[in-house]
């Protein structure tokens, strides 16, 4: 009886959760292991340990150029979407409740509509202005996708602020603008930073919209990986994947720490 209870109460849930986690992580682990392979083709388990595919990545302009483009695009997206998203969140908070629902629904719509639909729409709109194949197109499109994350994160921070703090600031002689910079902004800063990190990741990892907009002139890292997979497959792709995974996990870790410190 006790054994049955112990199995049902602890062993079973632990095993199930463990299996689910394994299911989720296993492909990532395989990719990471393969990236250290000495073989010239994708095989698991790898015959021997070697860093040659990392050297191949860092020694190849065809990989580094898209990497730098992705970083620059993501940085621009961070600046634009953080600015727009923070202002939008502040504006939404001042709307009457009924309008608030409509406004946040509209802002979140890029997350609700299938990405492929967004991508096609943006492609047609931008091709009319000759933007396809330029980094500007990527920055604008990725900003659309990243703004919802910033708005969500900043709105959550804003709703946690005691409205009396702003009243206190005004009563002490600070103007509304002074109150924003001295009281509101410092208090929502963790939310703004978390939003900025998510904006970076959103842009850096984005493939679908990039497939349509990169053309041949603005190839991002995910687009370069996609091309590589389609034409010539070698373990370099595993090395690149591992680096992107490490970067993303590090940024998510930062976001988590920021959130924890904010509470």
């Amino acid at each position: 009886m006790n054994l049955v209870q112990a199995i049902a109460g602890r062993v079973l849930p632990t095993t199930v959760v463990g299996l689910i986690l394994l299911f989720l992580i296993f492909p990532i682990v395989v990719v990471m292991v393969v990236s250290f392979s000495s073989a010239t083709y994708l095989t698991f388990p790898p015959p021997a340990f070697d860093l040659r595919w990392y050297k191949a990545y860092f020694g190849n302009e065809d990989w580094l150029r898209p990497t730098w483009l992705s970083i620059w695009v993501a940085a621009a997206v961070v600046i634009l979407s953080t600015l727009l998203g923070t202002l939008a969140a502040l504006g939404i908070a001042r709307l009457p409740p009924a309008l608030r629902v409509v406004a946040s629904g509209l802002i979140l719509s890029p997350l609700i509509v299938p990405v492929i639909v967004v991508a096609i729409g943006i492609y047609y709109a931008f091709s009319r202005y000759g933007l396809v194949g330029t980094p500007v197109a990527l920055v604008l499109a990725h900003t659309c996708l990243a703004v919802p994350f910033v708005v969500t994160s900043v709105s959550a921070s804003l709703s946690g602020i005691d409205p009396r703090l702003q009243q206190a600031s005004l009563s002490l002689g600070a103007t509304p603008i002074g109150t924003f910079f001295q009281v509101t902004l410092p208090l929502i800063r963790p939310g703004v930073l978390v939003g900025a990190l998510f904006a970076f990741i959103t842009s850096f990892d984005e493939l679908v919209v990039s497939l349509f907009l990169s053309g041949s002139g603005a190839v991002t890292l995910p687009r370069r990986m996609w091309d590589d997979l389609r034409f010539a497959i070698d373990p370099t792709i595993a090395a690149v994947s591992t680096l992107t995974i490490v970067l993303t996990v590090a940024l998510m870790g930062c976001a988590h720490l920021l959130r924890k410190r904010a509470t």
């Binding site: 005691d162 009396r164 703090l165 009243q167 206190a168 600031s169 009563s171 009281v183 410092p186 208090l187």
Partner: peptide, 12 residues
Amino acid sequence: GMVFQNYALFPH
């Protein structure tokens, strides 16, 4: 001058 319920001190 104003003193609020629950103080309203700036936490940062």
